[in-house]
Design a protein around this nucleic acid. Structure first.
Lengths: 243, 243
DNA sequence: TTGTATTAGTGTCAAGATAACAATAACAGA
DNA sequence: TCTGTTATTGTTATCTTGACACTAATACAA
């Protein structure tokens, strides 16, 4: 944010790169983790799938840019949004120097209003394991980075709840953990851990189609995010930072 | 990094912000954690202390920018460098829209060559607990963010070793943890934990002024960073993400 | 109504990790 | 050899984890 304090400011002496915000949007669809991609219509990478994004406006913050982008693509406003990493290698966009601030967003299924263009074939939800490859630009890398972040935050935060609807069953919650960790978890150990963490509130309601009906829970938002550490040791994680 | 795929690219339609890279540089000085700041000579925030930084060049990557900045300020090349966060609120710099990609760097004491300007009073190392406040721009926030990151990475990485010289004693290592965590650790538990992690190599050498001489260790770089999890539970941490 | 298929929910124990705790060892210098 | 100073080591009680299998509640069909 600062120039060299030693020298007076002269903006014209510096070329300015373009700055974009890209948002990796995750959501659960039919119990599977999906990511939203858009198909490019122009050079470069015409016809390739890309992470949705756009240029920032001069009067909005980075996060506001990301929220605008998100709303344009999904029509959703109240979401979990977190800055991921900034990608800025020269040459990552053949047109000009582009610095891209990547965010990732987690959407609850209930809030997903269908956009008109969502029915067209240039905006699609892909299961994270079936993303077309390669993506446009360096978006494969950005997506991988987002998945890594998601996985590692699962360990010590309540981030997983952001993917669930208002009320949910314990097995649905467990399923998310398994989806993202890519690993089966023991039911009893999982239940115990969650209960001890004290982040769930019993709604008293039940839900069931076949079999024994499941208890419905709600996430206790009054629990401050940083107040407890929800460590997951059963599933051994690999910490691997990109860049 | 991508424009709206729907529309053809026309750079002139978008104003471009300035992009800078700021580097929060940490080092140990006389057993205390210090951070390097520079005093601003021009408007805005003339006379205020700031985190060193500068505009990026069009042909260098963000990390290259950060390394250049770092070398210009400290003359040091081989350091630990990690991207921290990108700050881009409109108005954070009164001159123009500035997006700042913040990095943090950890420097070993031995590698610190003195710069000529380090003797002048416009570049100074401050103990992290005695940083002048407020800093220029939103640099207080950036610094706080860097400290939080450092603290939380202590838990599950070998980052602390990056602040130590080639060889060091166990008590020196413990002291770093205590510095950053802001908390006393039990000597025996600490030794055990470190030994079990298997990241240290005994040099066979000793060092001592008064009292029993201390064994000198070396960090085993062959241990891949992600291979083990060096969890610290004794010191309860607060996870608190900025932004 | 009874049985069967299906999904939800629960408890124990052994092994491992952690935190709390104090005494001894190796040196320098008086 | 005594004293001051710093470095090093081990045990135990408690908590946390991971492994493991049976019972409960419903729907539906026989």
């Amino acid at each position: 944010m600062t120039d060299q304090p030693q020298q007076a400011y002269d903006a014209s002496r510096y070329d300015r790169p373009s700055v974009t915000v890209d948002v990796v949007i995750f959501a659960l669809k039919e119990r599977e983790l999906h990511v939203l991609l858009v198909k490019r219509r122009n050079w470069p990478f015409e016809g390739y799938w890309a992470i949705p994004g756009g240029f920032i406006k001069m009067d909005e913050s980075l996060e506001e840019s990301a929220r605008r982008e998100l709303e344009e693509e999904t029509g959703v406003r109240d979401v979990y949004l977190e800055q991921l990493y900034t990608f800025g290698d020269p040459g990552r966009d053949p047109r000009t120097r582009v610095i891209s601030v990547a965010y990732f967003a987690l959407i609850r299924p209930e809030t997903q209003t269908l956009r008109r263009s969502e029915e067209s074939d240039d905006v699609r939800w892909f299961p994270v394991r079936e993303v077309p490859s390669p993506l446009a630009f360096d978006h494969d890398r950005i997506l991988r980075y987002a998945e890594d972040r998601l996985r590692s935050k699962l360990e010590y935060s309540t981030i997983a709840f952001q993917l669930l609807p208002e009320v949910f069953t314990l097995l649905e919650l467990k399923h998310i953990y398994e989806q993202i960790l890519g690993e089966e978890l023991d039911k009893r150990n999982f239940y115990r851990k969650i209960r001890e963490a004290g982040v769930l509130e019993d709604t008293g309601r039940m839900r069931g189609n076949r079999g024994r009906p499941a208890r419905l829970y709600r996430f206790r938002r009054d629990r401050r995010e940083g107040d407890f550490v929800f460590r997951w040791r059963e599933a051994r994680l690999h910490h691997e930072d990109a860049e």
